[in-house]
Design a protein around this nucleic acid. Structure first.
Lengths: 229, 229
DNA sequence: GTCTATAGCTTGATAGAC
DNA sequence: GTCTATCAAGCTATAGAC
């Protein structure tokens, strides 16, 4: 070894200087979030990351492979956090309340989006576009999220005994639309409300969203019995 | 006049054979709905419409001009229908109920989307993508829809006396997210529910959406007083 | 892992004939 | 209004050197 201690230095520098693969995936996430899959070229990404285009092929196969990899990366994290949140809620109280279940689904997003790691905001901006894409959005969202969503549906069914199957699925659909738009941070609400609401005030909107959605679920799925508090 | 009666024939053929300008705008609407602004090239559009690329410049200036023209066209129709629906509701009952106001906002969409004119479905698929675009979605939606949305906000404020300003705007935001995803018809719900719900069953989902949203509004905006039936 | 170099094609835009 | 023809720039993908 010509440079004694170089291994330590390497490990230290590894923490500070990210791999080119990571740089590509991070820049891609930010750009795809802004303009969608078709609105970003590989050169947009690799130029901003300061690497060569050919590296995309080496690390991800092609543009689609890069897109899939970056969706998968945070979907895994989000699914794990949601799964743990649901588990905690059900351990404490089974069946849990509708509010608790909705909160287990949405609160992990709030945690991530208010964290120091600002790149989570990009991810949710991207998810909003994917969720609302009529061509491949449904399939893509299903692929990454539906296995766990099924467990949330099961919990909601237990929380709303005697409810109609279709009612629960449709209500989840309303939740999904409100949720993805909310965390997409499009700034529309800022202009519409002339500054009364700020699109990036995620705590405020989350505090309203959970009871809003929970109340809708109860209204639609509890037709047969009296609404309980 | 060399061809007596040619004017009558022209008028008849005008009804059947659409102008090239109209063909461009119709094809563009369908393709933009599928893949968004960046996912469609002018050649995709003009090839499918059977016209030359140069016509886009002549009729619309450029790609952006074409996109704006096609958004504006149906926004005008939708705004007029919503405005009339709101007027009817308020004439019958002022202040109106939250359900009636929400319905005046959403039912015109239902009418259009179940009509024979299938191209309305494309338009709402496109609107869902615009609404959820973090880069220019907020501005674009505001431009075409917010003036009338303000009137709906006013009506909701009257229907929910003593409510907080921010609450009403945030609830509108949840409505907007649920509404645009619902009529985007992404087919996700079909897979998730294993056929129990069909994404294109617009009457079913609309019948659930209006009370779902209305109940959320009442829950969030009526904190200070008792909820009335 | 990373780069150079390039093939082969598509893009938005437009000048100018008819 | 509509077309032909063309441009300069951009695109994804990949072969092959290091």
């Amino acid at each position: 070894m010509t440079f004694p201690g170089s291994r330590v230095i390497d490990m230290a520098s590894k923490k500070h200087r990210k791999s080119r693969k990571d740089r590509i995936i991070e820049v891609a996430e930010r750009l795809f979030a802004k303009r969608g899959f078709y609105g970003v070229s590989l050169r947009d990404i690799t130029n901003e990351a300061g690497v060569d285009v050919a590296l995309v092929k080496y690390h991800f196969g092609n543009k689609q492979g890069l897109f899939d990899a970056l969706l998968q990366r945070r979907a895994d994290i989000l699914n794990r956090e949601r799964s743990e949140a649901l588990k905690r809620v059900l351990e404490r109280n089974n069946p849990a309340s509708v509010e608790e279940i909705i909160n287990a689904f949405t609160h992990p997003i709030l945690n991530e989006i208010v964290s120091e790691d600002e790149s989570w905001r990009d991810y949710f901006g991207l998810l909003a576009q994917v969720n609302n894409n009529p061509e491949w959005g449904g399939k893509t969202m299903s692929r990454y999220f539906d296995p766990l969503v099924q467990k949330f549906i099961d919990a909601l069914r237990d929380a709303l005994p005697g409810s109609d199957e279709a009612d629960i699925y449709w209500c989840y659909h309303f939740l999904s639309g409100a949720l993805t738009l909310t965390f997409a941070d499009t700034k529309r609400i800022d202009a519409l409300s002339r500054g009364v609401c700020r699109s990036s005030d995620f705590e405020s909107v989350h505090a309203r969203m959970v009871p809003f959605i929970a109340e809708g679920f109860k209204k639609i799925c509890r037709k047969t019995e009296e609404a309980k508090p």
